[in-house]
Amino acid sequence: MITLTEAPFDPGALLGDFSRGRTETGAIASFTGLARAEEGAAQILELEAYPGFTEARIGEIAEEARARFSLDDFLVLHRVGKIAPGEAIVFVATAARHRRAAFEACDFLMDYLKSKAPFWKKSHGPDGARWIEPTSQDHADLGRWEKESS
């Protein structure tokens, strides 16, 4: 399931709910991303999405992950709007029969979400606001998966 939310969320509760009631899943991996304060340079992070479009594009990649890693299930929750340092921005959980697939699918989804997902990101700091473009490290991280698939 793919969800965008303006409200803060509790990653522990999400993981508990995601894990419950599974009898064939042997492995669940999860990742929680938090907003960093950047030593005071970023006071508030603002994320804009294109409702409908953003969920659909993430859903396509999640279905790719489901097929590639034979996932039993996945959950992606992403904040939009204004996010304070220390709050969770993103939560990804993957369920598979074995641990390697769960770890790799979680890593794969995060590399996509951090570099290419349809979000526009603005940092509000003491010197005003600025739009943030993806870093070359984000693109290099995504490139790992392209090489392996060719």
């Binding site: 991303g33 994320l47 294109y50 479009f53 992403h78 904040r79 921005i89 993103v90 996509y112 979400l113 951090k114 570099s115 290419k116 997902a117 349809p118 979000f119 526009w120 990101k121 739009w131 943030i132 473009e133 993806p134 984000d138």
Partner: peptide, 10 residues
């Protein structure tokens, strides 16, 4: 019609 600048990821 939506105009989308380079997507930054989350």
């Amino acid at each position: 019609v939506a105009f989308l600048p380079p997507m930054s990821g989350g």
